[in-house]
Design a protein around this nucleic acid. Structure first.
Length: 260
DNA sequence: ATGGCGCGTCAAACGCGA
């Protein structure tokens, strides 16, 4: 089963690219972030024509996440527990039936957190903490699950072409990195890093300053696997070729292949 | 060395991202 995550930076601006990608790469599940659309505005039709079921948690103008799945949804939840007052659409998770049982897949869009020293940064840290607590609850179920999405965290210096340039950025703060690490420390596996220990693997290149041409990228889109999912990990990768497409998202698709 | 973009909301700049 191939599961992909992609921050598409606007589903309406990226609909043709998304459909081309799905026809070409045939993921069983794709988690989308930054759809920048309300639920009713999401162009479900073209995706359904490709055989995908669609689950959307949208918001006007900003944020917004979705899961497209060739397997039917048994259950969908679109809130990250821990803060009933949080109105930002950044999380959706679905339970799918697979031959070996059930698998849970989350599409998450972790807050950017810039600038540091503001309530935006504390919101980011609180959000990661909520995700950690949720991961802990999910782990108790001892089932395969994947927390996939745009984490807006550069875990290590080798996850950036120019780590020094990110020193004052929320994506590379010691607190951000430690909070991400604490989720991994709960017992989750960073699938892409496990399959690709070499440096120089990036998932985002800024639109400005010819960042892609210089390969001035960062790795901030991740798939964290539960132990039961990691047991079945076959391969993982980054489809950086989409960044060279016409009218690209600034993020590229990242995927895992699981033997389930 | 420096500065360089793009999307959505609206209908001109602006908020936001990373």
């Amino acid at each position: 089963m191939k599961v992909t995550t992609w921050n598409i930076n606007g589903v309406k601006a990226r609909i043709d690219s998304a459909l081309t990608y799905l026809r070409q790469e045939l993921p069983d599940v794709i988690c989308l972030q930054e759809i920048k659309s309300v639920d009713e505005g999401f162009p479900a039709g073209p995706f359904e024509e490709l055989g995908y079921n669609v689950a959307v948690h949208g918001q006007k103008g900003f944020n917004g996440v979705a899961i497209l799945s060739k397997l039917a949804f048994d259950d969908v939840a679109s809130r990250l527990p821990g803060d009933e007052t949080d109105e930002q659409a950044r999380y959706i998770e679905a339970t799918l039936s697979v031959p070996s049982g059930a698998v849970k897949i989350a599409s998450l869009y972790l807050p950017n957190g810039n600038p540091i020293g503001t309530e935006k940064f504390s919101y980011k840290l609180a959000w990661i903490k909520r995700l950690q607590e949720h991961a802990r609850d999910l782990l108790k179920e001892e089932m395969p699950f994947i927390l996939a999405g745009d984490y807006n965290v550069i875990p290590l210096p080798e996850d950036a072409k120019q780590p020094k340039a990110w020193t004052d950025d929320a994506l590379f703060q010691p607190e951000s990195r430690a909070a991400f690490r604490q989720i991994v420390n709960e017992g989750l596996t960073d699938a892409v890093r496990l399959c690709h220990p070499e440096p120089g693997l990036y998932t985002f290149w800024d639109y400005q300053a010819g960042a892609f041409q210089k390969d001035n990228g960062i790795r901030i889109d991740h798939l964290l696997l539960s132990p039961q999912a990691a047991d079945r990990l076959v391969a993982a990768g980054v489809d950086s070729f989409t960044r060279a497409w016409e009218k690209p998202s600034d993020h590229v698709p990242v995927w895992v292949d699981l033997d389930i």
